[in-house]
C-alpha cells in the first residue's frame, strides 16, 4: 500500500523531471542554435555530442517516438524513420527481433559478394552455425590469455621507447590493433592496406547513412581487394601451415573436422566481417 502511494509521487516527479529537462534542452537548442547560426557554424553545433544529447532529451519529453515519413537513412531499404528515445521503448525494440530486424545484411552481402555475415543475420540456422563456429575459433579465454598480455607488452614497449613524447595515434592506438590483426587474427597483411580496407568497410557498413555513391564505389573496390587478400592468404596458410594459436589456424582446424560454415569461403567471409566491424579503433582514411 505504501509502495503504491509512493509510486504515484515518484511517477509524477519523474514525469515533471522529464518535461523540465525537455524545456531546458529546448532553450539550449534555440539559444545555442541561434548563436551558431549568427556565427555561421550551425552544422557544427548540431553535430556536437552535447547538442545531440539535448535534442534527445527534448524528444524524450515531448515526442518520445518521432516518426518521419520520408527516407532519411538512404543506405537501408526503408520508407521512413521512427526515432525511439525512451529507454523502455528502445529495449522493447531491441528485444523484438522478428518485428525489428538488423539492417546490415544487404551491405554485408555486397562486401562478401555473396553470403551474409552473422552481424547482419536474424536468429536462425545460419546465425547459429557461424556464431558457434567463430566462438570456437575466437575463444572467450583469449582476451585474458592472448589479447591483453600481448597488447600490454606492446603498449609498454612503445611507451618505454618513446623517450617521454609520443604521437599516440600512429605510434600506439593504430599499431596495437593492427598487431592484433596480424598476430591474433593471423591475417594482418600490410598495416597500411589492412587499416585502409577495414576502416573503409566499417564506414560503409555503419556510417554511410546518406548512401554516398562515389565513396560507396571506393568501399566496394576495397572490399574486393580485401577478399582477394584473404582468399590468397588462406590458400597460402593451407599450403604452408603454421602452429600459431591464431583465429585463422583454428578456423582451418575446424574445417578439417568438417565443421559447418568453415569452408574456405566461409572462413574468408567470417574473417572479412570480423575485421570490418572491429576496425572502429582506426581513424577514417584520407580517401574518405
Amino acid at each position: 500500500m505504501i509502495t503504491a502511494i509512493l509510486n504515484v509521487f515518484i511517477t509524477i516527479y519523474q514525469r515533471l523531471a522529464l518535461w523540465g529537462e525537455a524545456l531546458v534542452s529546448l532553450g539550449y537548442l534555440l539559444f545555442g542554435g541561434a548563436r551558431a547560426l549568427a556565427a555561421g557554424g550551425v552544422g557544427d553545433f548540431f553535430l556536437k555530442a552535447g547538442t545531440q544529447r539535448r535534442a534527445f532529451a527534448l524528444l524524450r519529453g515531448l515526442w518520445p517516438n518521432l516518426s518521419i515519413s520520408r527516407v532519411v537513412m538512404k543506405c537501408y531499404d526503408n520508407t521512413g524513420t521512427a526515432v525511439v528515445t525512451r529507454r523502455a521503448d528502445v529495449v522493447d525494440v531491441l528485444n523484438r527481433n522478428a518485428d525489428f530486424e538488423v539492417v546490415y545484411g544487404t551491405r554485408m552481402r555486397q562486401l562478401t559478394e555473396g553470403d551474409n555475415f552473422f552481424l547482419g543475420m536474424q536468429p536462425g540456422w545460419d546465425y547459429t552455425r557461424d556464431t558457434s563456429a567463430m566462438r570456437l575459433a575466437a575463444r572467450m579465454t583469449d582476451v585474458a590469455d592472448i589479447v591483453q598480455p600481448r597488447a600490454t607488452a606492446l603498449a609498454d614497449r612503445i611507451v618505454a621507447d618513446s623517450g617521454g613524447t609520443i604521437d599516440i595515434v600512429p605510434a600506439l592506438t593504430l599499431e596495437v590493433p593492427w598487431d592484433m590483426t596480424d598476430t591474433y587474427f593471423g591475417c594482418g597483411g600490410t598495416r597500411e592496406h589492412m587499416q585502409q580496407w577495414t576502416t573503409t568497410l566499417f564506414w560503409y557498413l555503419f556510417q554511410d547513412l546518406g548512401a554516398d555513391a562515389e565513396k560507396g564505389a571506393i568501399a566496394l573496390g576495397q572490399a574486393a581487394e580485401l577478399r582477394d587478400y584473404l582468399d590468397a592468404h588462406i590458400a597460402a596458410r593451407k599450403a604452408s601451415p603454421t602452429d600459431a594459436p591464431d583465429i585463422l589456424n583454428r578456423c582451418l582446424a575446424l574445417q578439417s573436422s568438417d565443421t559447418p560454415g568453415m569452408s574456405d569461403l566461409g572462413i574468408r567471409n567470417n574473417l572479412l566481417g570480423l575485421l570490418s566491424v572491429r576496425s572502429r579503433r582506426f581513424p577514417r582514411p584520407a580517401a574518405l
Binding site: A49, Y76, L94, D99, F100, R280
Partner: peptide
Amino acid sequence: RFNPFNPVLYRRATHDT
C-alpha cells in the same frame, strides 16, 4: 557515455507498428 562512437542503433520494422 557523453560521446558514444555510435550513438544510434538502427533496426528495420518488418511491418507497420
